[in-house]
Deep mutational scan, measured.
Amino acid sequence: MSGIALSRLAQERKAWRKDHPFGFVAVPTKNPDGTMNLMNWECAIPGKKGTPWEGGLFKLRMLFKDDYPSSPPKCKFEPPLFHPNVYPSGTVCLSILEEDKDWRPAITIKQILLGIQELLNEPNIQDPAQAEAYTIYCQNRVEYEKRVRAQAKKFAPS
């Protein structure tokens, strides 16, 4: 494992614990031996107030490669969400998460999670990743928002 990646992720964890947006979660997972795995984080993004996503808490896994922060983490909703920019596998399609697009090593975990929260309610229809959600979003916004509200209710924190 890269010392650069681990040191950056340790800084990220410290900064997150000191200050993070209300309702968001970002925690490194534990290895079988109980030690912390900084390369694999369990996160959760709350649906934004005043949107059909409100009330939901959407679980996301963030996986970092050894060359982080040169390369972005892979962000994957578990379980996958109904959304035009979420692949059926759950992987998020967002330009700041793509090395050859808008990724920059200075982007923080907090910025990534806030960017994904923004994307939930403002899909990028130029870059669809899920045919069904994309089609319904474009053709029947009322039905799309109904499905999103049902999903938010399903993923409401207990």
Rank of each mutant, 00 (worst) to 15 (best):
E12L: 05
A5I: 15
K14W: 08
Q151L: 07
A26E: 02
G50E: 14
W41A: 08
G90F: 02
W16G: 02
N37S: 14
P128T: 08
T29S: 14
R149V: 09
F82R: 01
M39R: 08
P84I: 14
T135G: 06
T35H: 06
W53Y: 05
N40Q: 06
K110M: 06
F24E: 08
W53G: 05
C93K: 02
A15Q: 14
G56A: 05
C138A: 15
M36P: 02
N121E: 13
E98V: 15
Q139F: 07
E42W: 08
L57C: 12
T29Y: 15
R17V: 00
N37P: 03
R149C: 05
G47T: 06
P88K: 11
T108E: 14
K101A: 15
T135L: 12
D19C: 03
Y137R: 03
E118Q: 09
A152R: 01
T35E: 00
N31S: 08
R104M: 01
I109N: 03
L60Q: 04
W41Q: 05
K18W: 02
G115M: 04
T35P: 04
D66L: 12
Y68P: 03
H83M: 02
W53T: 00
D67F: 15
F82I: 04
K14N: 07
G90T: 04
P88S: 13
E42L: 05
D102C: 11
G34T: 04
Q126N: 10
K110V: 09
S95A: 04
T91G: 15
V92K: 01
K14P: 00
D66T: 12
D67C: 12
M36R: 10
Q111F: 15
L81M: 11
A15D: 14
Q117H: 13
S71Y: 10
E98W: 10
R149W: 10
W41E: 08
G90Y: 13
C43H: 00
F58S: 04
G34S: 06
R147N: 08
I45M: 13
D127I: 00
M62W: 01
E12Y: 01
V25G: 06
R104L: 03
S2Q: 15
K30F: 07
A131E: 09
L9E: 07
T135Y: 08
E98T: 08
F24Q: 02
K14V: 09
P79V: 14
D67Y: 10
E143P: 06
G55Q: 10
L119W: 10
G50T: 05
Y87E: 03
